[in-house]
């Protein structure tokens, strides 16, 4: 029920050595880090969690989560979530071929109308993807980027978030229907719901990794920085910020762990509620935790040369992706109401 320790050690060492603040800065300028992608792809990481029979690297949901957590912790500027957790997974479920390069996935509108596929949404690193994966109902499309209109854009962390629009004949695009139910999602299976749930969970896991790094960076800074002749970590008001950031980090990590367990079919909680709940917890942790971390860092934290911003800007971006805070809060609320007052505590303690 946990990730392969060797895999965790390998990816942490790889990203820890490779992903320097300069590399991240460069990727934000150019929109791509071929070095990072090639290193990860060379080790098969972008296809972990996808069956080997479908062209993936094998491994469990826990392995996949450990990789995404490391991507978050080191702010690695690559579409790991889109390739492994969302787009690649959809292709594999549908029996479509996995491309050798990065995959993106559409977060937005995708409708089949009279034999045509109409899409309008955002794709992370869409301009760099071999395929943009689109789910509509139970159908999965593998679209070549050359077929769609790409409006370049980026989130506030400088990660490409491109606007994708297209109106294509369904038959011009490789596609397949996912038949049956992919556990642990409910029947009738809806690939769009599954993509959105997995997308939201990818952000939860990455954010938990990043919040852990933010908390530790803040503790380190507060012990190294001296004012009034002593480390600022000895001041109660600063200690309060350290505690707040640590609480946010552990709450986010627990939310991520429990939601990943639900995705893996473990535990007794319903994946719909647990992912929504995790998003709500993590969104709150991002707001409060990054505020405390920046406050403890003072002016240094808002400079471009100190690396805190490389994590906090990503956190502020990820919370708006694959559904907003408000949407996920309502979704969690709807799960609560559906079960009613008598079902409330079982939901909490499932």
């Amino acid at each position: 029920m946990s990730a392969d320790p060797l895999l965790v050690e390998t990816i942490e060492r790889l990203l820890g050595d490779l992903v320097t603040p300069d590399l991240i800065e460069h990727a934000e300028t150019t929109g791509w880090s071929g070095t990072t992608w090639d290193a990860l792809a060379g080790a098969g990481f972008p296809w972990v969690g996808i069956d080997e029979s479908a062209g993936g690297s094998g491994g469990t949901e826990f392995d996949l989560a450990a990789i995404l957590a490391a991507v978050g912790r080191f702010a690695a500027p690559v579409p790991m979530a889109e390739t492994a957790m969302i787009g690649g997974w959809l292709l594999a479920q549908a029996g479509l071929e996995l491309p050798t390069g990065p995959v993106s996935a559409l977060d937005g509108l995708a409708e089949i109308r009279g034999g045509r596929l109409v899409i309008d949404g955002t794709a992370a690193w869409g301009r760099h993807a071999d395929r943009i994966v689109v789910a509509s109902g139970s159908t999965v499309f593998a679209i070549e980027p050359g077929l769609v209109e790409i409006g370049p854009g980026a989130n506030i962390a400088g990660e490409p978030r491109d606007r994708i629009t297209a109106d294509l004949a369904v038959d011009d695009v490789p596609h397949a229907v996912i038949t049956g139910v992919a556990a642990p999602f409910d029947a009738p299976f809806d690939a769009q719901v599954a993509a959105r749930t997995r997308g939201a969970l990818s952000r939860v896991v990455m954010a938990a990794g990043a919040l852990g790094a933010v908390s530790q960076m803040t503790i380190d800074y507060a012990h190294a920085r001296h004012q009034f002749g002593k480390p600022i970590a000895t001041f109660q008001a600063v200690q309060s910020h350290l505690v707040t950031a640590a609480q946010c980090a552990v709450a986010a990590q627990m939310a991520a762990d429990v939601a990943v367990r639900a995705l893996a079919g473990g535990g007794t909680g319903a994946v719909g509620f647990e992912v929504a709940a995790a998003r709500v917890v993590v969104d709150g942790a991002i707001t409060i935790g990054t505020r405390a971390a920046h406050q403890a860092h003072g002016a240094m934290g808002v400079t471009r040369e100190y690396p805190l911003h490389q994590l906090t800007r990503r956190l502020w971006s990820w919370r708006h992706e694959w559904g907003t805070t408000k949407q996920w809060r309502r979704a969690a609320g709807a799960c609560v109401v559906e079960r009613g007052a008598d079902g409330l505590f079982p939901l909490i303690s499932a």
Partner: peptide
């Protein structure tokens, strides 16, 4: 009133916190 957005927002904000505190 179980379908009111305001109620969904309130429960959607509070219940996930109970859930994570239970697990912690």
């Amino acid at each position: 009133r179980q379908g009111d957005d305001e109620l969904l927002d309130l429960l959607g904000a509070l219940v996930p916190m109970y859930w994570v505190l239970h697990h912690l």
